[in-house]
Amino acid sequence: MDAQRSVYGLMAEFDSANALVEAARRTHAEGYRSTDVFSPFPIEAAWEAIGANDKRPQLFILIGGIMGMLAGFGLCYWVSVIAYPLNIGGRPLNSWPSFIPVTFEVTILLASLAAVIGMLALNGLPMPYHPVFNVPRFSRASQDSFFLLIEAVDPKFDRQRTRQFMQGLGATEINEVEP
């Protein structure tokens, strides 16, 4: 127990995207769930392999867009009808077709802000410190190397057996991640 607490997880390094995806699939099949894979570019098969498919960004964007639409139209309506009505030749105050451009722009604006801020928030960024950066080789994860992490909190995690399992995956290097 004490030996387990002192480590954040085990990290295996692979030299190709294919090896990483294959390893991720086998790790998931083995029953590990507190896992993560790191790659220098997006690999769709990699997040499918560990079962990551977060649909909340889409929801955030939808909510942002609806709020933007209401805010944009509400602003035009409130200003033109309630706060500052100008009677020009008896034309209707709520001239909604001329409010559409502003409504559209504010919809896109808030949806885009929701998209980016939501994505960063769900990813937990900005995060200046993370244990994975303690592995010296990990600086290659943003350049040309591929990593698989099994966290110590995973119920199946066992320092010896997990390391043996990782060796069987064809990892080029296995490192313990300091917490």
Partner: peptide, 23 residues
Amino acid sequence: LGWRGSARHWQRYETVYLILAGM
């Protein structure tokens, strides 16, 4: 911002990037 190339991050990133392009 502490980007580490995690696949869980990439998945949300790609989703959002594509929707931003669509908008």
